[in-house]
Amino acid sequence: MAEKYGIPDYKKMYPDASEEVIAELRRTERKIRYQEHDLKVNGYEIKQEERKVIKIPGREDSLERLVGMNKQFVNGQPSVEEEVFHKIMCEQLHRAFRMLEKEEQDLIYRLYFKKQSEREAAYQLGISQNAINKRRHKILGKLRKNINYFL
């Protein structure tokens, strides 16, 4: 039989569970029910001096009501698959980056993370901009090769 307020009888459901586990299940169930109630039910605020009652709407809303109010939803969010693919590719890129020599890592860091131009990097390193460009292309080729190695 279910307990008071619709909380399941965890003793019957899990006869081998310890008292601590049962107590935690009850506490968690009560917390969930409280949060569900808090989200669904409207609240009221009474302002004595103004003699007003202000309705505070619940925070849960239905899709039908939001569509009826012409609320717009973001369509451009990436799918779960796209996010997972992006995360995997970033991990592969970081592994490939760690395989580069220190000087190569420094140049990529300057150009892509600090957003320095080739000319700025060349000036700071004391070499020509053309040399920076050639090194960048060589390093990017190495990165591609290393990433394909991991895939």
Rank of each mutant, 00 (worst) to 15 (best):
P78C: 10
V74H: 07
P78N: 09
V74S: 11
V53G: 01
F73A: 03
K71W: 06
R65D: 11
H94N: 11
G58R: 02
L66Y: 08
G76W: 04
L63T: 09
R51S: 07
E82V: 02
E64A: 11
E83A: 10
F73Y: 11
V84I: 15
R59N: 10
I56L: 13
E83P: 04
P57F: 00
Q77Y: 12
E82P: 05
E50K: 04
K52S: 04
I88Y: 13
E91P: 02
E81R: 01
V80H: 07
K71Q: 08
E81V: 06
P78K: 07
S62H: 11
E81G: 04
E81H: 03
D61G: 08
A96K: 01
A96Q: 04
I56W: 04
I88E: 15
V80S: 11
E60Y: 07
K87I: 07
R51K: 09
L66V: 06
E91C: 08
V80M: 09
N75D: 07
L66D: 03
L93E: 08
E91F: 11
C90N: 15
E83M: 12
S79W: 05
N70G: 08
I54P: 00
R51T: 08
Q92Y: 14
K87Y: 07
N75V: 05
V84M: 11
N75F: 13
Q92W: 03
V84T: 07
K55G: 00
D61M: 13
L66G: 03
V74Q: 14
L63Q: 14
I54Y: 08
R65W: 10
K52Q: 13
V74M: 13
A96S: 10
R65Q: 10
M69G: 06
F73G: 02
M69P: 00
I56Q: 06
M89E: 15
G76A: 10
H86C: 03
V74I: 09
N70K: 14
V53Q: 01
E60D: 03
Q92T: 03
P78Y: 04
K55N: 01
N75M: 14
D61W: 11
H94F: 07
H86S: 11
C90P: 03
V53C: 01
E91A: 05
K87C: 04
L63A: 09
P78D: 12
C90G: 14
N70V: 07
R51G: 05
N70C: 13
G68F: 01
M89L: 15
G76H: 02
Q77T: 05
F85Y: 09
K71L: 08
V84P: 02
V53N: 00
A96Y: 06
